[in-house]
Deep mutational scan, measured.
Amino acid sequence: KLPPGWEKRMSRSSGRVYYFNHITNASQWERPSGNSSSG
C-alpha cells in the first residue's frame, strides 16, 4: 500500500506508470516508500 496522499497514475505521453501525491503535488517515477519514518 502506498503512503498517504500517493496514488498510481499513468503518463499519457510515455505510457509509463508514475506516482503522484495530491497532498504535496509531488510526482516521481520511483515507488514512494511507506515503511521508512520521515525525518
Rank of each mutant, 00 (worst) to 15 (best):
K1H: 13
K1D: 15
K1G: 14
K1R: 11
K1Y: 11
K1A: 13
K1Q: 14
K1M: 13
K1W: 14
K1S: 14
L2Q: 02
L2S: 02
L2D: 15
L2Y: 03
L2R: 01
L2T: 03
P3R: 02
P3M: 03
P3W: 02
P3E: 04
P3Q: 03
P3S: 03
P3N: 02
P3C: 09
P3H: 02
P3F: 02
P4Y: 09
P4D: 09
P4T: 07
P4N: 08
P4R: 07
P4S: 07
P4H: 09
P4W: 08
G5P: 08
G5I: 02
G5N: 06
G5K: 01
G5A: 04
G5Y: 05
G5S: 03
G5T: 02
G5E: 05
G5F: 06
G5W: 04
G5Q: 05
G5M: 04
W6D: 00
W6M: 00
W6H: 00
W6L: 00
W6N: 00
W6G: 00
W6P: 00
E7I: 10
E7N: 04
E7A: 05
E7P: 00
E7T: 09
E7S: 08
E7Q: 07
E7C: 05
E7M: 06
E7H: 08
K8D: 02
K8Q: 13
K8N: 02
K8L: 14
K8Y: 06
K8H: 05
K8P: 08
K8G: 05
R9E: 02
R9C: 10
R9F: 05
R9M: 06
R9D: 01
R9N: 02
R9I: 07
R9A: 04
M10H: 10
M10R: 14
M10A: 07
M10N: 06
M10T: 15
S11T: 10
S11A: 10
S11F: 06
S11V: 11
S11E: 13
S11R: 05
S11D: 15
S11Q: 11
S11L: 11
S11I: 12
S11H: 15
S11P: 02
S11W: 05
R12N: 10
R12L: 11
R12M: 10
R12C: 15
R12W: 05
R12D: 09
R12A: 14
R12Q: 11
R12I: 12
S13L: 10
S13T: 13
S13R: 14
S13V: 12
S13N: 09
S13A: 11
S13C: 15
S13K: 14
S14D: 11
S14F: 07
S14G: 09
S14K: 07
S14L: 10
S14R: 06
S14P: 04
S14W: 04
S14Q: 08
S14Y: 06
G15S: 05
G15T: 03
G15Y: 02
G15Q: 07
G15F: 02
G15M: 05
G15P: 02
G15H: 07
G15I: 01
R16S: 06
R16K: 13
R16P: 03
R16F: 07
R16I: 08
R16W: 04
R16V: 08
R16Q: 09
R16T: 07
R16G: 04
R16E: 10
V17W: 12
V17S: 07
V17C: 14
V17N: 06
V17H: 09
V17T: 09
V17I: 14
V17K: 04
V17G: 03
V17P: 09
Y18S: 01
Y18K: 02
Y18A: 00
Y18L: 02
Y18Q: 01
Y18P: 01
Y18I: 04
Y18M: 01
Y18C: 09
Y19T: 00
Y19N: 00
Y19S: 00
Y19H: 00
Y19V: 00
Y19W: 07
F20I: 05
F20A: 01
F20H: 08
F20V: 06
F20L: 03
F20Q: 02
F20S: 01
F20M: 01
F20N: 01
N21A: 01
N21D: 04
N21S: 04
N21H: 04
N21R: 00
N21G: 00
N21I: 01
N21V: 01
N21M: 01
N21Q: 02
N21P: 00
N21Y: 03
H22T: 15
H22Y: 15
H22L: 14
H22E: 08
H22R: 11
H22Q: 10
H22P: 08
H22K: 14
I23R: 05
I23P: 01
I23N: 08
I23W: 07
I23D: 09
I23L: 11
I23E: 10
I23M: 08
I23T: 07
I23Q: 07
T24W: 03
T24N: 06
T24A: 03
T24M: 03
T24G: 02
T24P: 00
T24H: 03
T24K: 03
T24V: 03
T24E: 03
T24F: 04
T24S: 08
T24L: 05
T24R: 02
T24I: 04
N25F: 09
N25E: 07
N25T: 06
N25W: 05
N25M: 12
N25I: 05
A26L: 13
A26H: 14
A26R: 14
A26I: 14
A26V: 15
A26F: 10
A26W: 08
A26G: 07
A26T: 14
A26D: 09
A26N: 09
A26Y: 06
A26M: 14
A26E: 15
S27P: 03
S27D: 03
S27G: 06
S27Y: 14
S27F: 15
S27H: 13
S27L: 15
Q28L: 03
Q28H: 03
Q28T: 05
Q28V: 03
Q28P: 00
Q28A: 04
Q28C: 14
Q28Y: 04
Q28K: 03
Q28W: 03
W29A: 06
W29G: 03
W29R: 07
W29H: 06
W29Q: 06
W29M: 07
E30D: 08
E30L: 05
E30Y: 06
E30R: 04
E30P: 04
E30I: 04
E30W: 08
R31Y: 14
R31M: 10
R31F: 15
R31G: 03
R31A: 10
R31H: 14
R31D: 11
R31N: 09
R31Q: 08
R31L: 10
R31I: 10
P32N: 01
P32C: 02
P32Q: 01
P32S: 01
P32I: 01
P32D: 01
P32F: 01
P32E: 01
P32K: 00
P32R: 00
S33Q: 11
S33M: 12
S33V: 14
S33D: 13
S33K: 09
S33F: 09
G34T: 11
G34W: 15
G34R: 09
G34P: 11
G34H: 12
G34Y: 14
G34E: 15
G34K: 09
G34I: 13
N35R: 08
N35Q: 11
N35W: 05
N35G: 11
N35S: 11
N35M: 10
N35H: 11
N35Y: 07
N35F: 10
S36C: 12
S36D: 13
S36A: 11
S36R: 08
S36M: 12
S36V: 13
S36P: 12
S36I: 10
S36K: 10
S36F: 08
S36Y: 06
S37R: 10
S37D: 13
S37T: 12
S37E: 12
S37Q: 12
S37I: 12
S37H: 10
S37G: 12
S37L: 13
S37N: 12
S38G: 12
S38Y: 06
S38P: 13
S38A: 12
S38R: 09
S38W: 08
S38I: 12
S38L: 11
S38V: 12
S38D: 12
G39D: 12
G39P: 13
G39A: 13
G39L: 12
G39R: 10
G39H: 11
G39C: 13
G39V: 11
G39K: 10
G39S: 12
G39E: 13
